[in-house]
Design a protein around this nucleic acid. Structure first.
Lengths: 339, 339
DNA sequence: TTGTAAGCGTTATCAA
DNA sequence: TTGATAACGCTTACAA
């Protein structure tokens, strides 16, 4: 059906191997034959067959992208389209395509990952999240395939190449941002504690509280999901404290949105009665009412650099594991009030 | 390196072809040898090599997913993660993986598509959007690879299998929803007019206006992007009319969010001073302040059914082109006020 | 029911 | 600088 390398060889009056070399732009082929062969390729509309090529040279020019389980709420976070945008950008530069499997449970995803690894469907893998005790990360570690994690691995931090923000520092700074503006009762609303990023941000919050001479109070810390219900519960819980917080550090813009909504319903004005700082600085942070002061973590760069690291490992498997830190910065908007 | 079918054959004392038949679960193999072979596979940790398999049987078990250019704002829309969730769900059921190329321009994307089509990297393609005069759609039509469009094709509607909502009807209903609640001056804020969905929704709006005996007024119709700036401009424009609208039909939740934001800044209360109905009913619609009355279009189903149609075409290339309509419904929330 | 062997479209090794 | 030819790992007639 399709036009093959043999057809091109025939019309160009050369051997198939020559055509192959022209495709690879092998310098040991004369310019004359190169142009001759290229003309034949154009004339016949030749395109190399990927499967054949992969089979012969043991590489696929594809990167596997592992997302969290699609049953999971995490999946809905605008974080993902944006990392993927970063990933695609760099991948595209290097002529890599993206390959995704998903599943409704961690087991299904693991099966998919095993298939792509053992089936040699990809040259490397990017894990888009980091969980506590993650089976998939465990599997990847014992496989020989290059992989990179976006986020901080829970274990073996030195042994796994990863791209991350200094989330402890970022959360510390976000909290200090509120402290500097006069807040003394500061709440923390975090996402899933299974995610390393949540753990880190909580730690940064604690650090800031303690370093500022304020005393850490567990009642000020709640965890939930970013759905409407979750936001409302978190807010209810925090406002029922005898000395309720005047400022909130929320680990995710989406959660912050839910909280803004809940506060609004309860007649609590943001930022006047309650200040909010959140994380990620996704586009939504700009579109909400009021717009959100948020810690920008350069999501695009996280993806972009992850591919960079991965391609390095694919090209040279001896590359030492490394950590890459992406800078963050507080983006000031209208959800924080001094006082 | 990897363990191959031959290794399994050797340890199970059978021919490679027998192993292959066991993998395919060929009924002409005795249960005895099947178990024998399976034991060998487990013992050796065998996994079929995808490239080899694809090369031999001319199928890849992969579906190509074409997103809009990542330079495009459209890319940021939560619509995409959600369609992809639907796509993955069905694809996963049928053991298909997803394959994505992206690019910064339409040309780059086209190149990627050509590669995956001609290079036989996928068994079929799903186009996640429908534009006026789209090169990619044109290319797919002349290729012999099965493909399905999510949205209504601009041309050759009868000849291209697609999954869509009745966007004209949906917009008509959304507009009537406002009319029934007493609104007489109704504005329309639409996205990119290159997208067929925008054109359709505008048409539905016009229909509703005309059928209700109101007169259509071009001043009430504006187009923009869903960024903050876009929302503000749209609002400014609409409020400067001598008889400004009291209700707005906005073609996208994200745009509506921008508009909510702009209105809030200008001190216009939603829903009291301005009612808003938007489209898509993404999670955000629930999280905004006020929450948005939005036309739910079952994004998940759009993706899910698209894969269904695609697999049908892949399995039987003679399948007639068909259109599949996904139902919509107005989800009432707090952005509309009667009067 | 199972084995033999050719072929899928490339790349890579070895000669020429 | 180019050409034969053997892999790559699997599937599938055709034989047995």
């Amino acid at each position: 059906m399709g036009v093959t390398i043999k057809d091109v060889a025939k019309t160009a009056n050369v051997a198939p191997s020559t055509v192959s070399r022209v495709i690879a732009n092998n310098p040991r082929i004369s310019e004359a034959t190169k142009t001759k062969v290229r003309e034949a390729m154009n004339k016949l509309g030749y395109h190399p067959n990927f499967s054949a090529r992969s089979l012969a040279n043991q590489n696929t020019q594809a990167i596997g992208v592992v997302m969290p389980s699609s049953g999971n709420k995490t999946f809905q976070n605008p974080f993902f389209p944006e990392v993927i945008r970063g990933i695609s950008a760099k991948a595209h530069d290097h002529q890599f395509a993206l390959y995704m499997t998903t599943g409704n449970s961690e087991q299904e995803i693991l099966d998919g990952v095993i298939d792509m690894v053992q089936g040699r469907r990809v040259d490397g893998i990017i894990l888009l999240y980091s969980r506590v005790n993650d089976q998939i990360m465990a599997y990847l570690q014992e496989s020989d395939l290059p992989f990179v994690v976006i986020g901080k691995p829970y274990q073996n931090v030195e042994g796994i190449t990863h791209v991350d923000n200094d989330n402890i520092g970022a959360a510390k700074q976000a909290t200090e941002y509120l402290i500097q503006r006069g807040h003394r009762q500061i709440g923390f609303v975090g996402g899933d504690l299974d995610l390393v990023v949540t753990v880190d941000r909580l730690q940064g919050y604690q650090k800031a509280i303690e370093r500022s001479g304020l005393s850490y109070n567990g009642d000020y810390v709640v965890h939930g999901e970013f759905l409407e219900e979750g936001g409302r519960q978190a807010v209810n819980q925090l406002l029922s404290i005898s000395e309720p917080p005047t400022g909130l550090v929320v680990t995710d813009d989406l959660m912050a949105l839910g909280i803004l909504n809940a506060l609004n319903e309860m007649g609590v004005d943001v930022p006047h009665d309650m200040s909010v700082v959140s994380f990620n600085n996704v586009m939504l942070a700009e579109l909400s009412t009021p717009s959100l002061t948020s810690v920008g973590i350069n999501i695009f760069s996280l993806g972009f650099e992850a591919v960079n690291c991965l391609i390095e490992k694919i090209t040279d498997p001896e590359t030492e594991p490394k950590r890459m830190m992406i800078p963050y910065e507080v983006i000031e908007r209208n959800s924080v009030h001094s006082g």
